[in-house]
Design a protein around this nucleic acid. Structure first.
Lengths: 153, 153
DNA sequence: TATTGTTATACTCTATAACTATA
DNA sequence: TATAGTTATAGAGTATAACAATA
């Protein structure tokens, strides 16, 4: 019975607590993405890419909001920002309305590097999801997003 | 244009290289699972649970095969096995046919601990995927598995 | 000589707490 | 005093290389 917990599509899947299998497969795929998202491929570290991606989406933005968006502790966020700023991909400046705060913005150089990294990441995604049709990929994106959105509350 | 790369369902999604968005969402969900799969919840570390799960599936099995299945380097596999063996959840013994090899097996105590961890993990999965219907969860499992299977070659 | 497992070591990522400056 | 950011430090996870036992 406990064995069936791992096999969706069986009677066990009708129980309240669904199978741990979906999360298991999710973690394995994530591990593969991490392994293959090398600095050589992206032109920067995966974490730097993720930060840069988030910054561009809302730049200029407060450092605090950036940290929250990335689920990073403030200290980790600082360390990561130091790296990306050293690469001249982002700039930090004081918020003149509240000088305790920092405002983060992406630089033109950062945008160029991000676009290159995006192309590489898209290529990797094409390999990772290569077995799925376009329709299946959109379904996957929709389901993952739906699950993620529900967690934000 | 590069912005659209992140939005499936738009024209960009029809390009050869699909959006990096799906992988991005996948990584965020995985991060959440890691954060919430605490030792307090599972009764053991997540990595130990994953190892134990794999061992039960094929026990008794060769240590080498176990490492490969978990995508662990031999050294990391040894360290992790040391932990789980110290908990008396698995046992290692020499393979009498080839005394260089070790054979790993799960103990009755290991099975009990694993079953408890599975219940907890199933509960967590229910929370993580709470926004999805039963049918959607099965679809998600099928798509993730399909992508994963294709990577094995 | 090649293979299995182990040990030593270092590097990345993450988490906790204390500190600085501004409010 | 409370908050935003920073620094210091330690822990967990991972990777590379060297080593021991066995084939």
């Amino acid at each position: 019975m406990s064995r069936n917990l791992n096999i969706p599509g069986t009677l066990a899947a009708t129980m309240t607590a669904t199978t741990p299998g979906t999360v298991g497969v999710l973690l394995r795929l994530a591990k593969m993405v991490h392994r293959r998202s090398t600095e050589e491929l992206l032109g920067m570290r995966l974490r730097q890419y993720q930060l840069l991606y988030a910054v561009r989406e809302s730049a200029p933005m407060r450092q605090q909001d950036l940290c929250e968006r990335l689920w990073l502790d403030p200290n980790n966020c600082v360390l990561l920002l130091n790296e990306v700023e050293a690469l001249s991909y982002v700039e930090r400046r004081r918020d003149e309305e509240d000088r305790r705060r920092h405002v983060v913005d992406i630089t033109p150089e950062g945008r160029r590097a991000l676009e290159r990294a995006e192309q590489a990441q898209a290529g990797l995604e094409g390999e990772i999801l290569g077995a799925l049709s376009e329709e299946e990929r959109e379904t996957l994106y929709r389901l993952l997003s739906k699950a993620l959105e529900a967690q934000r509350g």
